[in-house]
Design a protein around this nucleic acid. Sequence first.
DNA 1: GATTATAATTTGTATATACATGTTTTGCAA
DNA 2: TTGCAAAACATGTATATACAAATTATAATC
Lengths: 237, 237
Amino acid sequence: MKKKYIEIYHTLVEDIQKGEYLSGETLPSEHELSSRFHTSRETIRKALNLLSHNGYIQKVRGKGSVVLDRDKFEFPVSGLTSFKELSERLGQSFRTHVHELTLVKEAKICRQLNCPAGASLWRVIRAREIGGERIILDKDYIRQDLVPELTKEIVQHSLYNYIENELELDISFAKKEIVVEPVTEEDEVFLDLKGHHQVVVIRSYVYLADTTAFQFTESRHRPDKFQFVDFARRTKG
Amino acid sequence: MKKKYIEIYHTLVEDIQKGEYLSGETLPSEHELSSRFHTSRETIRKALNLLSHNGYIQKVRGKGSVVLDRDKFEFPVSGLTSFKELSERLGQSFRTHVHELTLVKEAKICRQLNCPAGASLWRVIRAREIGGERIILDKDYIRQDLVPELTKEIVQHSLYNYIENELELDISFAKKEIVVEPVTEEDEVFLDLKGHHQVVVIRSYVYLADTTAFQFTESRHRPDKFQFVDFARRTKG
DNA sequence: GATTATAATTTGTATATACATGTTTTGCAA
DNA sequence: TTGCAAAACATGTATATACAAATTATAATC
């Protein structure tokens, strides 16, 4: 099946990004959109709810779907955006240094990933260089029973691309934490810290669509180069 | 109107929090829930989508709604949680020091809030003390045309409570940014920095349901006491 | 012309049906 | 007992209708 409402969502996102609808303006009414896309109003509403959820529009009862100004948050470290997408969006030169790609057994991480204590995990350690400076250190632990093979080429190119497109694993959600911590010896070795004594640490547990815990990631950023941008909707009730 | 699906959402959240459904288990099927709540399946689905969106469940096709383990992220600085909710959840003693409550005209902030350049803004500066240490400095700019009156009591007690419950303004969404910056003289004066030379800065633009930009907030945290926890769903397409 | 009442427009909620798609269970057959 | 096919079950998508509630446009009245 094609999932009409997803198609309509993408069409409308493109239209907004092309400037067809400016911020402050309203989209065509649900009724008009449904005749324009030859579909029912409920299907249009599903597409509009996606737009609303992702911060493209605000629906105002009796008025319409008002287009929001997304200019102020064009840096989505948010969501589950990967390093590759990120640096491409920045338009800066980037490199990835693979420092480790090994199989390990770490009972503590296994327990948090809900896999057997003796299970093998891939440990991937990569330094990210942007604009000539190594500013991010990524430490990944991935269940080997779900990803049997990993090569240096894969982790250097795009791990997520391999996992989602080659292995066709359905990455669905993540729990993440952002804190600030003192630098470790590892940070000193692999990063250009420029005198900084603390790093911003993003720890994530990544889950597949079937709720399988899949990966634990620790992303360590030099504080002056760190930015997290988010769109948050208030849950009513 | 009562909004059945909101009611059902809250009922199910309470049930999950009471441990009626354990993580890993599935909720009753949509069909069973609809007969249990005497409503249609679509209404149940709206409630379940809210649960899914807020990280309580993961819907798995053909299987059911699997309850997720929320233990690992019980510290939602996320969303738009206010300081009061936050410290109460922490269960620690807290105090608010009001250092400033004045009307100012700041063209730059006015422009970003889309209000006339000459408009008056409330500037509220508060230091937050938790466990005997002043670790958060909140600087708020609020449009006076939307909030005509503010007193020291209000900003000391709960600003959001006043705005939402007394003025009945409908706070709907926010754009926020998290960065790390050097401490300012102001930070030195109002916070117990304990030798830290950087603070975590959360800048937020807060909007009402009718898309009116309403408030700009800068929340400055001592890095060792800062934590941001989030549940992020991957947008498909 | 200004104010007010009415109608039209637009989004929100609730319900119903049909069929698609993925999972689990059941039952039959080898 | 094992293996496979079919049925039962669960969620996903698409469509339709009716009414509620908020806003905007229109018309009527003073």
